[in-house]
């Protein structure tokens, strides 16, 4: 029994339909608990006041915006190497979710930035990088929509995802070089173990981040299921056309 058996669309659908209710419930629960806890049960920040509470939306969304692209990169590689259709369709399904996460991060960032920095938008490296990431998502989705043959579309978008990832990292460094920036450092640095937010703010943030991760997973499973059913419908139509 290897994990690759779920590369079969039928088996994947069966499993994902079974686990989806659990994941949806957990996702809604975590997001609700994280946001409510964060908004109503934490004190105002000494300097930032109540505006800091947008962190419970902003940080998880930003986290998932990047992780969605990373997931697409892995899925694209699996498609290019092992030719599993589910992988390509999962990458396709994740892109719009990633775009929405990027947009949430950008918009909440602007709303947070207005009282803090006195302006809705600055060309800060982090903000700029997210804007560039947003453009990459748009190009990726547009390419999927433009190519008629689904396998060719999967091939082309996978290579675009690979090349785009390299250029996205390159842009990140270029943008850092170009403008040093206002944005505060990472809120939850994993590598160093230290953190710049106090525990009262940190725990609801973690719950919210887990919730966003689960929400992303649930949405991608759901959308991948839709894509598989669409492909199945068109495959059946194509075969039926050959019989007549």
């Amino acid at each position: 029994m290897s994990i690759w058996q779920y590369a079969n669309p039928v088996k994947f659908l069966a499993l994902s339909t079974r686990v989806q209710p659990v994941i949806w419930t957990a996702a809604v629960l975590c997001v609700a608990v994280g946001l409510l806890w964060g908004f109503f049960a934490t004190p105002d920040d000494a300097r930032q006041g109540a505006t800091v509470k947008i962190i419970y939306l902003h940080v998880p969304a930003a986290l998932m915006a990047i992780n969605a692209w990373f997931m697409m990169l892995v899925a694209s590689l699996i498609w290019l190497i092992r030719r599993h259709h589910v992988s390509a369709l999962a990458a396709k399904a994740a892109a719009p979710v990633g775009v929405v996460m990027t947009l949430i991060a950008l918009i909440t960032g602007a709303i947070w930035g207005q009282p803090m920095w006195g302006t809705w938008w600055v060309w800060d490296p982090r903000l700029t990088s997210f804007l560039i990431l947003f453009l990459f998502y748009l190009g990726y989705i547009a390419l999927w929509e433009a190519v008629e043959d689904p396998d060719t579309a999967a091939d082309l978008t996978s290579v675009l995802c690979l090349v785009g990832s390299v250029f996205a990292v390159l842009s990140r460094y270029a943008v850092k070089f170009w403008n040093q920036g206002l944005h505060q450092g990472t809120s939850v640095p994993v590598a160093t173990g230290g953190r710049s937010v106090a525990d009262v703010f940190f725990y609801p943030l973690v719950v919210s981040m887990v919730g966003f991760g689960l929400l992303f997973l649930a949405l991608v499973l759901y959308r991948t299921g839709t894509e598989i059913r669409l492909r199945r419908a068109s495959a059946l139509l194509a075969r039926a056309g050959r019989e007549s």
């Binding site: 560039i132 453009l135 990459f136 748009l138 190009g139 547009a142 390419l143 433009a146 190519v147 060719t152 082309l156 290579v159 675009l160 090349v163 785009g164 250029f167 996205a168 390159l170 842009s171 460094y173 270029a174 943008v175 070089f177 170009w178």
Partner: peptide, 27 residues
């Protein structure tokens, strides 16, 4: 090369290429 088989791929081509141009433009 990405957009070669696509009818009216001109606009799509710009959308795909411009983000890739960012590092070159910046430096």
């Amino acid at each position: 090369a990405l957009t070669v088989g696509i009818k009216r791929g001109g606009l799509l081509l710009s959308l795909l290429v411009l983000p890739l141009y960012v590092p070159t433009l910046i430096f």
